[in-house]
Design a protein around this nucleic acid. Sequence first.
DNA 1: TATTGTTATACTCTATAACTATA
DNA 2: TATAGTTATAGAGTATAACAATA
Lengths: 170, 170
Amino acid sequence: MPRTRATPPRRGASVARDSTAPEASDDAAGPIDTGILPELLGFNLRRAQISLWRDFTYTVGSGEVRPGVFSLMVLADLNPGIAQVDLSAQLNIDKASIVGLVDRLEDKGWVQRRRSTVDRRRQGVHLTDEGRRWLKQLRKDMLEHEKRFTRLFTPTELRQLIGFLRRIHS
Amino acid sequence: MPRTRATPPRRGASVARDSTAPEASDDAAGPIDTGILPELLGFNLRRAQISLWRDFTYTVGSGEVRPGVFSLMVLADLNPGIAQVDLSAQLNIDKASIVGLVDRLEDKGWVQRRRSTVDRRRQGVHLTDEGRRWLKQLRKDMLEHEKRFTRLFTPTELRQLIGFLRRIHS
DNA sequence: TATTGTTATACTCTATAACTATA
DNA sequence: TATAGTTATAGAGTATAACAATA
């Protein structure tokens, strides 16, 4: 489905013309005033994250992989048979959302669900051989991607930065 | 539309059982091994951003507003009649995506498009009176939201952190 | 009763391609 | 030809609610 939209009235919308609006010039010409935005932590964090995200999606796994998928595969590699509910906890996203990720990875043939013999509710996630081969390449791409950003910092700065970020998300 | 899925084969998928997989235990029991993930800049940046995002969406504008919408309104307030193509450049997202944002804001009655008299291709974005009233509240919510995270840092640390983030996204 | 996994549904963010009106 | 805006389409990310199987 395309973008949803409540109701059509757009162009000649019923919004009354605004009484206090400046009437002189109806264009914002010249340089744009960005106000306090550049000073906000959230604004800068968001933009930084978008920069990394874009670089990641263009370079890691030939654009076939997203950061969440990479993390999921690393976890499945290190913890064979990890429960989807554990992936959910580690990646901090809802278990219902994990299902979709694992579905797509299973369609690609990179992971496999296997019903646990111990607790038959669990559908453990395992990497396939092909998944392992891909992960090897993904790790390489990932490290190059990291490098492109970490090289902007001295080792001390990088340690500081990561410490700051942990303070935010912990 | 719900989540898309290529083909149904999920449960008994045709992926051959993996020869090199550890067969002993098919469950990952005990603590989860997260490997290098916690050391990665991208991983930490992503999680920090998600923390802020969640706090923002729950607290600013009673959950009716996203960071992008807030930024857009600030820009429209400071630059009455700003062109959508300029919003696109400032917010670093495609102009086609801006249209949808402005659509929803216009539906809410917070902004208004007005055809420029100077360049009739331009549909300048203006805040309405109601939009301005909302923005006043949004700014307050926004500053409280920021405070909840900036108070984790000393002024010096915060300056450092923002400097680091700018280095990444500039 | 509680947990694991799943489905259905819905909303947001974002992009690309192709188009219209205007310059 | 180039630019501003728009539409159609698509896919990713994420959430909530309700449910089945299992514990």
